[in-house]
């Protein structure tokens, strides 16, 4: 068997894998709202700092200072 068949099989299966990933992303609703995630990813991650009260103050003040 010629090596070209192997190469073709590999390249096409890689392409198909990406295509399947695309289909999955559409199906899971990732294309329904293309704006909100772009805002969401920019939020400071300070949920943790408020969950335990002991070091919340120091952390939240840090986040604030980085914001300004």
């Amino acid at each position: 068997m010629s090596v070209i068949y192997v190469l073709l099989a590999i390249s096409i299966s890689v392409a198909l894998a990406f295509f399947a990933a695309f289909l999955f992303s559409v199906k899971s609703g990732q294309y329904d709202d293309t704006y909100t995630p772009s805002v969401r990813m920019l939020f400071e991650d300070e949920i943790v700092s408020h969950q335990d009260d002991t070091d919340s103050k120091s952390k939240s003040s840090q986040t604030k200072s980085t914001n300004q």
Partner: peptide, 22 residues
């Protein structure tokens, strides 16, 4: 978006909330 997606901090009964801005 931020405050509405953090609703669980206002009430522990809320497990998740997601905003569709458009």
């Amino acid at each position: 978006i931020w405050v509405l997606e953090n609703l669980n901090r206002l009430h522990k009964g809320i497990s998740s909330s997601q905003v569709d801005f458009p």
